[in-house]
C-alpha cells in the first residue's frame, strides 16, 4: 500500500501535466476548425489606412484604435522600474571585476552613434515600416547597458545620472498623456488622432498619420529610460 502511495506521489504531477496537455489539445483542435468571420479585423484592414493615415496596421492598432491599452502597458513598465528602484540599496556596489582589451573599448565608442541612428530610425519610421516606439526604445536603452558592462557602474552613473533617467521616463509618460488630452481639446475622445483629424496627410510619407509619430517618440523615450533604469537597479542589487 505504501509503495503504491509513493509511486503515486512521484507521478501525480507528471500525470496532471499530461492530462491538461491532452485537454488543451482538444481545445486547439476546436479553435483550428472554428470558422469565424473576423469583422473587426476586416474593418481595420479595409478602412485602417484611410482612418488613421498609417500604413503599418500594427502601429495603427497599437497607437490609434487601442491607444489606451498602450498607456496601460507603459504603466506596467513604469511599475517595474519603480519596484526595482525601491528594492535597490543606495550605497555604491563594486561591479563584476572584468577587464577587457583596448579593442573592445574602442569598438564600443565607434558603435554607439550607429545605435543612436538605428534607434531613432526605428522610432520615427514606426508608422510606415516595421518597428515603432517599443523596439526603438529598447535599442536606445542598449547604449547605457553597453557602457555599464564595459566601463563599470561608476563611469556610467557619472555620464548618465539615475535621476536623469527617472526624469526622462516621467517626460515620456506625461507627454503621452498630454498628447492624449489633445484629442479631448479637439472635441473628440481621449487619445484620438484619426477621429479628430490631426492632419492625416498622405499615407506613406514621413510627416503623416496625425499624432502617431509623436506618440511613438514619447513611448520610445519612456521605454528606453525605463529599461535602462531597470538594468541599473539590477546591476546594483546586492
Amino acid at each position: 500500500m505504501s509503495r503504491v502511495h509513493k509511486i503515486f506521489r512521484k507521478f501525480y504531477k507528471i500525470g496532471l501535466v499530461l492530462f491538461l496537455a491532452i485537454f488543451l489539445l482538444f481545445i486547439f483542435d476546436e479553435i483550428q476548425n472554428l470558422d469565424i468571420k473576423r469583422y473587426l479585423s476586416e474593418h481595420y484592414i479595409s478602412e485602417g489606412v484611410q482612418e488613421t493615415g498609417a500604413i503599418n496596421l500594427v502601429t495603427s492598432v497599437l497607437y490609434d484604435y487601442r491607444g489606451f491599452d498602450t498607456l496601460g502597458e507603459a504603466t506596467v513598465i513604469l511599475t517595474a522600474a519603480a519596484t526595482l528602484s525601491f528594492m535597490t540599496p543606495i550605497k555604491k556596489v563594486k561591479m563584476l571585476g572584468t577587464e577587457f582589451t583596448i579593442i573592445i573599448y574602442q569598438t564600443i565608442i565607434i558603435i554607439i552613434p550607429f545605435l543612436v541612428v538605428l534607434g531613432m530610425n526605428l522610432i520615427f519610421f514606426g508608422h510606415i515600416s516595421p518597428g515603432g516606439g517599443f523596439v526603438g526604445g529598447v535599442i536606445l536603452a542598449m547604449i547605457p547597458i553597453l557602457v555599464t558592462i564595459n566601463y563599470g557602474i561608476t563611469f556610467s552613473e557619472n555620464k548618465l545620472k539615475p535621476n536623469h533617467k527617472s526624469l526622462l521616463e516621467g517626460i515620456g509618460a506625461i507627454g503621452f498623456i498630454l498628447l492624449g488630452l489633445l484629442g479631448i481639446f479637439a472635441g473628440s475622445n481621449f487619445l484620438a488622432s484619426g477621429q479628430a483629424n490631426f492632419g492625416l496627410g498622405n499615407p506613406g510619407e514621413l510627416i503623416s498619420a496625425g499624432l502617431i509619430p509623436y506618440l511613438n517618440l514619447m513611448i520610445g523615450i519612456k521605454v528606453g529610460a525605463g529599461l535602462a533604469a531597470i538594468f541599473n537597479s539590477l546591476i546594483k542589487e546586492g
Binding site: 500594427v58 517599443f134 523596439v135 529598447v138
Partner: peptide, 24 residues
C-alpha cells in the same frame, strides 16, 4: 513587428539580465 521586438528583447535584453543574475 513581433519579430523585431522578439529579436531585441527576447534574444538581447533577457540574456543580459540572466547573465547578470548568474554572475551575482
Amino acid at each position: 513587428d513581433a519579430a523585431l521586438a522578439e529579436a531585441v528583447i527576447g534574444a538581447g535584453l533577457t540574456l543580459t539580465f540572466f547573465v547578470i543574475t548568474i554572475n551575482k
